[in-house]
Design a protein around this nucleic acid. Sequence first.
RNA 1: UCCGAUGUAACUCAAUUGGUUAGAGUGCUCGCCUGAUACGCGGGUGGUUAGUGGUUCGAGUCCACUCAUCGGGACCA
Length: 1096
Amino acid sequence: MYREFKQLNLPEIDKNILDFWEKENIFEKSVDQRDVSNSYVFYEGPPSANGKPGIHHVMARTIKDLFCRFHAMKGQRVERKGGWDTHGLPIELSVEKELGITKEDIGKSISVDEYNQKCKETVMRYKDMWDDITRKMGYWVDLENPYITYTNEYIESVWWLLGQLYKKDLLYKGFTIQPYSPAAGTGLSSHELNMPGAYQEITDVSAVAQFKIKGTENDYFLAWTTTPWTLPSNTAVALGKNITYVKVKAFNRYTKELSHVILAKDRLSAYFTEAKADLTPDEVKASNKPIPYIEIVAEMKGSELEGMEYEQLMPYVTPDKPAFRALLGDFVSTEDGTGIVHIAPTFGADDFKVAQKYDIPPLMVKDELDNAVPLVNKQGQFVDEVTDFAGRYVKDYGQKEERSVDADIVIKLKTENQLFHSERYLHSYPHCWRTDRPVLYYPLDSWFVKAASMKDRMFELNKTINWQPSSTGEGRFGKWLENLQDWNLSRSRYWGVPLPIWRTEDGTQEICISSMEELQAEISKANAALGKDQSMPKDLHRPYIDDVVLVTDDGVPMIRELDLIDVWFDSGSMPYAQWHYPFENKEKFERNFPADFIAEGVDQTRGWFYTLHAIAAMVFDSVAYKNVVSNGLVQDKNGRKMSKRLGNAAEPFETLATYGADATRWYMMSNSDPWENLKFDLEGIEEVRRRFFGTLYNTYSFFVLYANIDGFKYEQADVPLDQRQEIDRWIISQLNTLIGEVDAAYADYDVTLATRRVMTFVNDHLSNWYVRLCRRRFWKGDYSSDKIAAYQTLYHCLTTVTKLMAPVAPFFADWLYGNLNSATQKEASISVHLTDFPTVDESAIDKALEERMDYAQRISSLVLSIRKTEKIRVRQPLKRALLPILDASFQQQVEEVKDLILAEVNVKDLEYITDTSGIVTKKIKPNFRTLGRRLGKQMKDAVQIINGLGQEDIQQIEQDNLYQLSINGDTFDLTLEDFEIITEDIPGWQVANDGPLTVALDVTITEALEAEGMARDLVNRIQNIRKDKNFEVTDKIAVTVEQHEAVNAAIAQFGDYIKSETLALSLEMSTDIEQGEAIELPGEVKLQISVQKATS
RNA sequence: UCCGAUGUAACUCAAUUGGUUAGAGUGCUCGCCUGAUACGCGGGUGGUUAGUGGUUCGAGUCCACUCAUCGGGACCA
């Protein structure tokens, strides 16, 4: 017996199937039953269990899960090792927040050891929740043996990778301009700068400084700055290559000296008013912003000024290389300022970059340790060399002072004819989120990977990766690679992989450790040389590793570089570190590299997708993955970002519990392509549940209702296809077409197409056409071979569908498969996930059959449409429909499905009319596809001519298959394929069309037809009463109908029909009905009818 | 501000890659079915394809610009 259910309950199914999977170890079996030699490699991008899982994780993991399941069904071995990302700033921040400490407290009020211990505890805080969601959403991944990034083994592999980079000379120490908080004494990540409230509106003193051009009398570049404190560090000015500049003759507003100043033409009006040839110095007021000028003496492009030298503005320190030149920078705009940008390489990222490009040095001085440092120290104060301002803070760090240092600098410039203008300026400026003090852009020491030097190779390798969608690979990722910068690995934090580099104090010698063995050897060497008693730290994290002192060959101690490495390097190392390669599992690694498939959100493009790619390219000269799906964001139903603050975030556990995992997964995959942002709407899940799973469930229910009655267990041999009905062969043909499409779509990583095709098949083809039209075959008649064929056909469709949908809807598919297969034992597999993906039986595909069934459906639709407009109910039989035939094969095609159509639309006959009958009106249109190419520009005239052709012309064309078109002297021989000819109308008939199909309906209702229609309505009413009275399907009845002229004919002519349909033993008429029911019949006929169980 | 993606019916999505009446589902509306399914079936309503301009015989589709939404980067003068 097949199991029967009262109603569809997806969450209940989830639970049962989960138990089943776990009891029977289905996941393990699905992996183990496939051979190692045919592996499909998947990498799990490790989540951090420090945060709770959200609905977007369900989305991303559905994608991961389904392609793995698909390939497992395709016969491949798909091992899925889970992993946890355990390091990083978010973890440190959450710990600090919890303990109520800041970074400065670490090493003071709390030891690094304790702090890291706390991080380690925190990192798996929500592991149970993650395991739970993994289970409940049906994500198959091995969580028994996950890789964990904080283990010594993992770290050792990471070190080995760093060692490889080091050996390839791809690691170096350098400095870069980073956001730095002098108040907190720490660099800030861009993530910290993006925290709400980081950017605050503050007022600064801005200055337009005059840079005197060398070799001129009084020519100056004008450059604007909102940070006058960077002016002593100026070493260049930048101009825009294509920006037009003007040289303006004017008086300095403060000194009244006559000068020529250069600025962008577009910015002239911001600083100057009108030109006055006879301008006197007194007319120029210091307090006015725009001032009059004398005349414009020259105009030139920025490119013409490139390389011009100027005199140092504030010569406190002399650079060690030539500087003070005009450069070209693409970042220069004329939105504000003067169109000339002052460059201080030590305090601006753009500045640093452009200066480096032109080999302009930054201004540095030597500190007491002989290290080069900028003119502002790490506390935010000017160094001694800046004599006038030594010790002054450059921003507001709580110091008490009469005037800001910016203001004092402006005053100094003013007196030396170096200031063009100054004003207070309101702008948004980044602040440290912890101290609330301004951030400086400051050069910090960092370790870098020379990624930029490998960018060409990375770009090449990227071309071999199949990106889904391709635009992310070519566009977002490709562009990123083209403009690749060196990878800053350094993080001055505590909880992460320590940089395995030891250096001598003077930085002249260093060693990069690649393994624990090497470290052990170096420790022994150092112990011997330095007389120490150090041992291998049990834990490779800080602070233990920091205590290790190594030694150079000549006996100089080396201490570890204190930095940690970027956590992204951790996750990018997972292909190797998850196996502790190369120290263990060499073979396993080689078998599992590179990955066939990975998937994550688009936000990982510059994250995990990049780090995987970069490490693989630099260390192994290989891609890390061959196929990658990047999914979009999950937004709320109005397209807004989900956030706790807005309270619009969907709760994944609740969603799964309410709608079930499958409806959620199916909705996410079928609604739109996964790489589009998903407007997550619970109503959408409900619709999927109702329309797709509900329909499939009902189809199953229908099947078992009768299969159980008839005892169908698929014990008989398959009825050969050619002995099955047309409609059986049709649905099987459709099914095989479907298999091919779905297989190809999954293989192409296009789930959305796959799910949509399955839905169309289940809803439109299987349920709404096959089952509906075949209903009688299941409940009427004996257990004949035709009936068995129907059962076999439907059974085959259902089991095949379970396999096609299994990757996306693993619970329901397994449930349905189990229900079917456990009754028949037709297949040996106890789970759909252990079966092979269906293969296409090409011999079962009959395109002509699919086509004519499509005709049948469309013709039926047209007839129903005419009935609708004519307000003739379907129960009213009609005499005939007319069908103009398009060509000989069309008629033959329709003839094969004629009976289906007639039954479906309740019409007695279908007649064909040929072209020559002359009673149809035709319409002719050009076939643009064929004609467009041949005619080109003459197409317009051709359309005119063709549209003007009359009925006779059309007939002629159809007869001759030739039409000579002449346009402007040219003649073209056109054949039928150059036209589209459709029947537009049949005068005197009710007509409907759909593309080339046209149907006419004879709507005359004869008395006989009317009586038959009435009879069918009577049957319908009697059946209703039977059902209302809860009669058994097999109960015999006696019927008495109230005397009424409207039903006389029906009962007289169709009495037997009514009796047989309703199992009535008697059907009588009477003027006096006892215990009757009131019924209504067409024509507003109301009468009484009595339906009683027949006694005999 | 730069880069990228997206923009089609009230909503969610299609549209054979440039071919002439832009299609489905949901919603709405009207009707039907009552021997699988009212969680059903059918008919209908609903569009200046974000806007402007261009290329083309022909544009939802290609190009340019503008606008809107989302994401990523930059925030420096």
